[in-house]
Design a protein around this nucleic acid. Structure first.
Lengths: 253, 253
DNA sequence: TACAATTGTGTACCAATTACACCTTTAATA
DNA sequence: TATTAAAGGTGTAATTGGTACACAATTGTA
């Protein structure tokens, strides 16, 4: 829990360096061992979780803000980021503000304001990310998207909207490339698609179709270890992938 | 051209009732006689055109702001509106601000600020709209999208992004319904699709496919007048259309 | 060495899209 | 009133793409 002194310092800084009514919230996706994850923060005071977020510096392009915010939460640079929706309901931060309302005079409190939040989704390499809490939170960690804790504010809406966006953009954005490790097997990639689409796909048709796009390089090695036939490893052919995405991968799922 | 007095009044009001760093810009599409149009404003001082825009009241949901702004420009209520992108470059309004910069002290001038603009596209019934200029402009009129005048600021980017969005959402949003008049012929609808997609479609396949969706009601009447066979009139079956859009119309164009 | 589990490949079938041909209707005109 | 040009309406064959399977191959383990 922040003390009154800490909050006053934060407020003074925030008011000076950030735009006053704009925030950014990020839905950071990672994929690990066949499971899709979202990065979330548990705030000091409540038993509910938040998406990582922050504010826009007065002279900073918003994409740069989002990158800066996520670098602080993950340690990663050059994250794949896309804005996807603006959440502009005047009441959206009501509950959250009430938490700190009594600690500072309303007129002076930067945080007791209406924030119009720009939603970004981010795709990061799970293994290289290093989740780090911010001053308002005690925990920053990955959560399985099939087993999410309770959200604060409208962050559940933001998360769901991001996931819907991912689904719609699967044929237009390099989602596979940014979520998979450099080398992966076909079943692993299929798992990602199934998670995003929320449905099972036929193993054999998935493989044939994916190879048909010509966006994968088949590697010599296989993934040994399982008590079964070892699957081949693949990597994305980034050049072909980008070209194919320009027109959108054909067909639906 | 606004006088200094008028500008001071505007500023005083604006600072009081609007959020300080957020604006809304709208790309309003209309369709008339086989041609796609955009609503544009010619400002008092420059020989360049702007998209209709405005600001967000301090306690107003942003969708309501966009509706309010467009009601002032078109006289229409309940316009079909979707936010599609945020334009957040800190320099995006630079040129525009310079126009009024010398007229008011910088610190006090509401308009001499950074504005992060939320882009909305709107689809309106051309014949019922009544274009009306705002205080900053002398003309408000429809422009043919194939013959556009020079834009101010980043409004060309905003327009192009909107058109791209329209193309991508053609199978997911009731774009035909909101741009066509209540009754229309198949060739007229095809023209709309060709305009949005930027390519010719086969007349016969278009008709069969469109009818196959089951989203049109065929009417008894035909459109007489041309020196040719009179085409049938159709109207959208709104119920079926909505249902079909839920899963997205199948296939690509 | 046999087995269970999983991956790799092939094929027949069905649905959707494409590329056409041909007929019908309208108004202008001879 | 018959003819004609221009456009709309309908049908079909060929092609493509997606779906639903069957079956063979490979791996570690029992």
């Amino acid at each position: 829990m922040l003390t009154k002194e800490q909050l006053e310092t934060l407020w003074a800084e925030a008011d000076e360096i950030y735009l006053n009514n704009i925030s950014i919230d990020c839905v950071v996706f990672g994929f690990h061992e066949g499971v899709m994850k979202v990065l979330m923060l548990k705030s000091n005071n409540e038993d509910a979780w938040l998406l990582p977020g922050g504010f826009v510096r007065k002279l900073e392009p918003i994409d740069v803000s989002a990158n800066r915010i996520l670098k602080e939460r993950t340690g990663l640079d050059e994250i794949f980021l896309k804005q996807f929706h603006v959440f502009g309901d005047p009441d959206r931060t009501k509950l959250h503000n009430e938490m700190y309302r009594d600690m500072l005079p309303a007129k002076k409190n930067f945080f007791d304001r209406r924030f119009i939040s720009i939603g970004y989704y981010a795709l990061v390499d799970f293994v290289n990310a290093n989740p780090t809490p911010d001053v308002f939170s005690e925990v920053c960690t990955w959560q399985d998207i099939n087993d999410l804790p309770p959200f604060q504010l409208d962050h559940e809406l933001i998360f769901k909207t991001a996931l819907d966006t991912l689904r719609l953009q699967l044929n237009y954005q390099p989602i596979g490339y940014n979520l998979m490790p450099r080398e992966f097997t076909m079943p692993e990639l299929q798992k990602l698609y199934e998670t995003i689409l929320g449905k099972k796909l036929d193993r054999r048709n998935f493989q044939r179709r994916m190879l048909g796009f010509g966006i994968l390089n088949k590697l010599e090695e296989t993934r040994k270890g399982g008590a079964h036939k070892a699957p081949y490893l693949y990597e994305f052919n980034l050049e072909h992938y980008q070209a194919a995405l320009d027109g959108g991968l054909s067909g639906g799922w």
